[in-house]
Amino acid sequence: MTELALILVATVLVNNFVLTQFLGLCPFMGVSRKVETCVGMALATGFVLTLSSVVSYLVNTWVLAPLGIEYLRTIAFILVIAAVVQFTEMVVRYTSPLLHRVLGIFLPLITTNCAVLGVALLNVQQQHSFAASALYGFGAAAGFGLVLILFAGLRERLAVADVPVPFQGAAIALITAGIMSLAFMGFTGLVRL
């Protein structure tokens, strides 16, 4: 039980996927202009991450390992992720057409979010159990959502701030991301897995 709690804290804060492992940077920079869209994106990514890490664990344990074709892991996981993203898009379009319109192209682009594939592969590499895999995926998504929303809040304020001309736009966003990453380094040593 403590191990599972540790996984959660470790993925959300200590080994945050965006700020310390530098995975999933494209949506982090791309959709972080408004807090509202960020919440939607964080929820959609959370759904995809948790589901895909569970399904990829099942595929790895029940299909790839017994047949001895673990070398096809990457391609099998990409297949799983693509299917899960498609499924998520259908669910979002069915439950909330408005959110579907707001997220637009970023929803199918979760497929290419490297954090999703990264979590699936790290699960195998670190030999997580089923529950640990699910929690690892969920924790990665929670960490991703947390920094995405924090970053969007910062960028909303930056939009009205008096930024010097050479730093305007992407430059100040990247600098902000760097400082956030520095801040998250402060969590190192909080938990050791």
């Binding site: 299917a83 259908m90 069915y94």
Partner: peptide, 25 residues
Amino acid sequence: TAILAIGLLAALFGLLLGYAAVRLR
């Protein structure tokens, strides 16, 4: 084995997605 396994996996996902597309119209 490898080709069959991946092919079957893809077909299974395809069927699931097709079913979801009809249900979640």
